[in-house]
Design a protein around this nucleic acid. Structure first.
Lengths: 127, 127
DNA sequence: GGTTGACCTGGAGTGCACTCCAGCTCCTAC
DNA sequence: GTAGGAGCTGGAGTGCACTCCAGGTCAACC
């Protein structure tokens, strides 16, 4: 199965411009072209894009995704280093989750505080 | 207790420049000044800064923090709306945590995959 | 054969959140 | 009284990750 850039955009959730941008900066290999010079994406390409968007939503910087892409290009010999990159990133995602969880607690506390104020206010009126 | 801008920066974890920037864009009220025209921060100011940095680490956009700051300035009558802002933000933080958790699963999967490759590779050598 | 619509390129522009800078004023300590 | 350090202002610059644009090509349909 192959896909036009519009289809690849739809399936990856990236914009057409972003797809071309990723190609420009070396995040994705230049896809094949049809007779008219148009980009043709394969299922493999889409798989890679799915991985990229996944990493992007976790806040992996483009710099890091590029490093990973380069390693991938160099084949199986770089598997160890790629794993290293993922391990590092996993650690930072875990940290980020912990940070967010801590902030959730602060939010809960603040919200409860506002609920108490509301309560007091209502009592003040009815009293 | 009062603090110079350098002390406020240290205690809040923000840079001196960021403190002045936040003031410029209306995120914090202009603090008092000493006889020489220098900013003097109070414990209250620091409390507000702590809250802001907390919200910032959760990805609350400055636009939203500004809205909240404005409501706060208008006093207790806006408590309901402020609570609303926090509720909304809490929902988005929860969503974000779920997103990250899902991505952690993908990372775990990928890492396991690399471990299997390594394993195979080692066996290939020793065999 | 002309119009339409998708796609192409190189390059400029955008929004966010800072960060840095030049040139100045104070206060303090020698 | 002067050297140094902290702080001041308005404004320019930065890095990131896109996003938009002008001007052009190409295939297909009427």
């Amino acid at each position: 199965m192959t896909y036009s850039i519009a289809q690849a955009a739809e399936r990856s959730g990236l914009s057409i411009d972003t797809l071309r941008y990723y190609e420009r900066i070396g995040l994705v290999d230049p896809p094949a072209r049809d007779s008219g010079g148009r980009r043709v994406y394969t299922d493999d390409d889409l798989g890679w894009l799915a991985f990229l968007t996944r990493m992007r939503t976790t806040g992996m910087p483009i710099r890091m995704m590029r490093e990973y892409a380069q390693l991938r290009r160099r084949g199986p010999a770089t598997a160890g280093r790629r794993k290293q990159v993922l391990l590092e990133h996993r650690a930072s995602v875990r940290e980020r989750i912990a940070e967010l969880q801590a902030s959730l607690d602060v939010l809960d506390y603040k919200i409860t505080h506002y609920e108490q104020i509301e309560h007091t206010y209502v009592e003040g009126i009815t009293a």
